[in-house]
Computed example of a mutant assay.
Amino acid sequence: MSWWRSRRRSVCWSSCCTTRSGSSCSGGRNEGGRGLISFRYHLVSIVAVFLAVALGILVGATVVKQSVIDNLTTRAGDAVKLSNELRSELALWQKFGTQSRHLLVGNELASQSFVIVTAQGVSLAYVDGVVGVLRDAGGSVSAIVSATSAIAANDAPTTARLAQLLSDPAGTAPGQLMMDAGRAIANRLITGPQADDDFLLNLTGGGFLSVRLEDAKQVAEVGGGTQAVVVLSGSTANAVVPPQQLFIPMLETLAASNHPTAAGETLQSTYPFVTLARRDRRIDGSIVSVDDADTLPGQVALAIGLHELVINKRGGDFGVKSGASSLLPGT
């Protein structure tokens, strides 16, 4: 029992002791005189550890990020250098192709005359490229006939003027007017001008067509049985004149008359034209179609294909898109 009494006389918890005479605290020191670590010091230590870890992560991330940036900068520089080299090489091949094009097409189209039909929004550089290859092959181009946006207009005054020129009933739908215009233009190019009334001149005067004379001296010399027709469409922008409503009926009329005709489209066109013609049984097989006519292979295919059509009465579909039989005729 003496042991129990001594334990009751003095019980110490942390820095405070309880005895029979009362309680006392040592003010931060235990009975052995050693100092205790307060919570404030624990908190400071923990915060310091977290700050050190955060600083290490920040420094490490900065070093890694800079190395990644340096690597990407180097790779980007290499890519730009390679791109410039490829551009230079491509420009060289394009120059070579343009200057040697006449050797590829020879005199395939000697003494043959053509009319180019196109529409507003189609690249002039593309059209001029086709004109160039036809001339390189020995042919001539009487004129470039281009449909304007007015022929696809929906407003009443414009459609009324077009209906009058076509002798269509008043109130004819704009889409039907375009199809009728396509057929009427085709008939004018097949037969040539009438002595007293030239439909091409009437449409030009009404703002529905523009005619750029090339080898012809006047519009009256454009068209007729001796002039083959090349219809060109395609663009990376939306079509100003929908080819399915103007050019497809035109091709159908030309094909029905066995008039020598070709249809060309740009390689990157965002809207179809040549592929529509290839699906049309009234057209396919009767004309030459080229779906990459803005490229050197397409231009060469157009010239050789037209030779086969004019001389051997044999059409064909060339290029890289749906319905093409080969890149070039005879391959």
Rank of each mutant, 00 (worst) to 15 (best):
T118D: 05
R183G: 13
S24Q: 06
N187E: 14
S38L: 12
P243Y: 12
Q112S: 11
Q164T: 15
A79V: 07
D136K: 02
R314K: 15
V117F: 15
I283S: 06
A237C: 00
S286Q: 10
I69G: 00
S67N: 13
S2Q: 09
G132C: 00
D292I: 12
N30R: 11
K81M: 04
D70T: 15
G206P: 08
V105T: 07
L92G: 05
L246A: 06
K95V: 00
G316E: 04
D294I: 09
G323D: 12
K65H: 12
L86G: 01
T158I: 10
V49I: 15
F114G: 00
V219T: 15
T270Q: 15
T266V: 10
T148R: 00
T275F: 11
A173M: 07
L72R: 14
A277Q: 10
F199D: 00
D198Y: 10
V122Q: 04
G138Q: 07
F208A: 09
V47R: 02
R40T: 01
G171F: 10
S67W: 09
A147T: 03
D198C: 10
R278I: 03
A143N: 04
L232P: 04
I144H: 02
W13R: 13
E308K: 11
A277T: 14
E265Y: 07
G171D: 12
F273T: 06
F199P: 07
V59N: 05
A147F: 15
R87Q: 13
R212T: 13
E89R: 13
A239L: 00
V11M: 11
T191D: 12
L200D: 09
V44A: 12
N154P: 00
I144A: 02
A152F: 06
D294V: 11
T62N: 14
S26Q: 05
S140D: 09
S286M: 02
V68T: 11
L209Y: 03
R278V: 03
V222A: 02
S233V: 10
I190L: 13
Q299S: 08
A186Y: 06
G132A: 15
D180P: 00
G77Y: 05
R282H: 05
S235T: 11
V59D: 03
P242W: 08
L55H: 05
A239D: 11
V222P: 04
G305A: 08
N187S: 14
